[in-house]
Design a binder for these strands. Structure first.
Length: 594
RNA sequence: GGUUCCGUAGCUCAAUUGGAUAGAGCAACUGCCUUCUAAGCAGUAGGUUACAGGUUCGAUUCCUGUCGGAAUCACCA
């Protein structure tokens, strides 16, 4: 049994003995003691005054006295303004340290719960950018967290590989590309294709301007611009499976995939299965027809099919056009069902998609539920806020995007410069140094994007780049490498077996660290329930910060008392372990030296 | 216009989901390398939590209104 539960039981016992009336569960509020006060567990006594008929302070004293007298492990207490702060004796803390483990998924027996996590979802007409980075790191980290708590996670991405926007790059390449390809030009495939997408837009705008100059209205100009006509014609050809068009499409997409692969590799993320929109965009019609037949949907006179969501406080939503073709919602319905066929074991899906699509997913899940898919209740839109630049929103067509590859390179370079400046590389081999820059740079970037609550929009200033000091990934990595260094010096045999640890009067810092360590399981659980890596990030930062305090103020290796040194080494080792696990959950590596 | 979300230190973010004196980092300023890595530690300064009401022992958190910002509401994806 863990300490929190033990304290709770004792408090409940105390209350039962002291108060004549039965106290409701919800009125027993135990929370971690705030930093500035002594103690580890705090009972909020205000709600109890209803039962005790005494002041909060008197109530607290009654309970405190009882606990100190009867539990044997609560050393003392203090009362401030109706808050009862309990101090647990040090031998209990040492015992807690002995029993502490980072393993939390104990339900190894029985089938694991299966879940699908979708993230990334790129378009094949342009390279990945900062927004994708948040999406990808988030999706990856959430997958890790779910898996850590014992779930079987299938990571997938849906690739937006068709449609008018893809045809735009194709048209521009055909017209202006002069046969250029990634191999000969030495331009990364996704970047090359992206250039043609931009080129298309440029020409398109020019043509619109010319038409407007001739007196054509803006709307008509946008429709009639000759290059846009060509793109539309190409989309029709593509849909008609014209061999030449398909060939070009396949070729250009393959360039993009090679480029993406490099980018994903550097990010350190993988997928278990890829879905292509070109293979799913026609799905979903049968589902819509089923819904129509069963009366869940309705058909208008022009033949279009709709669903009425006004009871749920939403609008009527189109599901199939009057000409019988699909809309976005149609294919998402189809894809959702397809995935449950591909992975019959999964109980739910997590969609990592920006918050501008919140409405879409609300509707999607509602419709799935209406048609009768029970798993719809376990579908979750992992919605995250946009990453803003100081200049405002990123617009790919206006060239204000922060490119993913460039940004990763930049932070790695920054790590390199900072390391050189501190003269830390002298003892490292070239390979080790390069690997370190990579770990640090990406660690800094990932931590930066993950430490913020996913739901909130966040700001990124490319001018200032990513910090390496303070509340950052490298700070945590540094703490880890410090401990690694310490343990190397000590030698493995110096770390005692848990059973050998003896209690002593702990330093405040030591106790604080143990308390922090014990929060690990709770934090992971919380991060899992809220789909929020930021909870892990915040937690591991606090732990590292606390450990650095110990490092700076208390001798570890040079401690003359064998038992104290043993306990501190054991504690250090555990802190390093938790840091490793937490960083791994964030997709960040933990260097042995830096 | 309807709906949803957001507004916390100069800047970027926290705040145990209604708890104590609202915390960290960056930037500024002061100290600390002759003891395990100073990418660190200790400290100073910085706040009417957008504003006005309400609910109660207690509000950054819940409710109402105002102001400011964002997203969304397509036979687009």
């Amino acid at each position: 049994m863990n300490l929190d539960e033990l304290v709770k039981i004792e408090i409940e016992k105390a209350i039962e003995v002291i108060f004549p009336v039965k106290v409701e569960e919800k009125d027993i509020q135990i929370q971690p003691t705030r930093k500035d006060f002594r103690g580890s567990h705090t009972l909020v006594c205000f709600p109890l005054t209803r039962f005790s008929k005494k002041s909060p302070e008197d109530t607290a004293v009654l309970i405190g006295d009882y606990l100190v007298e009867n539990t044997g492990f609560i050393k003392s207490y203090n009362v401030l303004k109706g808050f009862l702060n309990l101090e647990v004796s040090d031998d209990v803390w040492v015992k807690q340290l002995q029993n502490f483990s980072t393993v939390i998924s104990e339900n190894k027996e029985g089938a694991k719960e299966e879940i699908m996590v979708e993230y990334s979802s790129p378009n094949t007409n342009k390279p990945l950018h900062l927004g994708h980075l948040r999406n990808i790191f988030l999706g990856w980290s959430v997958s890790k967290i779910l898996a850590y708590t014992g779930m079987d996670v299938h990571k997938v991405q849906i690739i937006n590989d068709r449609g008018i926007h893809i045809c735009k790059s194709m048209v521009a390449w055909k017209r202006y590309g002069e046969g250029v390809n990634p191999e000969d030009s030495h331009i990364k495939g996704d970047k090359l294709v992206g250039e043609f997408y931009v080129k298309f837009d440029k020409v398109y705008k020019e043509q619109i301007a010319q038409l407007i100059a001739k007196g054509v209205s803006k709307e008509r100009a946008e429709q009639e611009a000759e290059i846009m006509q060509e793109a539309k014609a190409m989309l029709l050809k593509w849909e008609a499976k014209d061999p030449e068009t398909l060939e070009l499409w396949k070729t250009m997409n393959s360039w993009v995939y090679l480029g993406f692969e490099q980018t994903y590799n550097r990010m350190g993320v993988t997928f278990d299965k890829l879905y292509y929109e070109s293979e799913t965009y026609l799905l979903g019609k049968d589902i819509v027809m089923q819904g129509l037949n069963s009366g869940v949907f309705y058909q208008k006179e022009d033949g279009s099919i709709w669903v009425d969501l006004s009871e749920e406080g939403l609008d009527h939503k189109l599901l199939l056009r009057s000409d019988g073709t699909s809309v976005y919602m149609t294919q998402d319905l189809g894809t959702a069902v397809l995935r449950f066929r591909d992975f019959p074991g999964i109980t739910g899906q997590v969609y990592t998609v920006g918050n501008e699509q919140e409405y879409h997913f609300r509707v999607l899940f509602l419709i799935l539920k209406k048609i009768g898919y029970k798993w719809a209740e376990h579908c979750y839109h992992l919605s995250y806020g946009m990453v803003d630049l100081p200049s405002g929103k990123m617009k790919s067509r206006e060239g204000t995007v922060v490119d993913a590859d460039e940004l990763m390179e930049e932070v790695v370079q920054k790590a390199k410069e900072a390391t050189a400046e501190l003269g830390k590389i002298d003892s490292m081999s070239e390979e080790e140094a390069e690997a370190l820059y990579e770990l640090m740079g990406l660690g800094a970037l990932k931590y930066y994007l993950l430490k913020v609550d996913p739901k909130k929009r966040m700001l990124f200033n490319p001018e200032e780049s990513v910090d390496l000091q303070g509340n950052t990934g490298p700070f945590i990595q540094y703490t880890h490498s410090r401990i690694s260094s310490l343990l190397r010096k000590a030698g493995d045999d110096q770390i005692p077996e848990p059973a050998a640890l003896l209690a002593y009067d702990l330093e405040d810092v030591e106790r604080e660290i143990i308390i922090k360590l014990l929060e690990f399981g709770k934090k992971v659980e919380e991060a899992k329930n809220l789909y929020s890596p930021s909870i892990i990030a915040q937690y591991v930062y606090d732990l590292a910060k606390e450990y650095n305090k110990l490092w700076q103020n208390v001798m570890i290796l040079k401690e003359s008392d064998d038992n104290k040194r043993g306990v501190r080494l054991y504690l250090s080792n555990k802190v390093a372990e938790v840091i490793r696990v937490c960083l791994d959950l964030l997709g960040i590596g933990a260097p042995e030296r830096m």
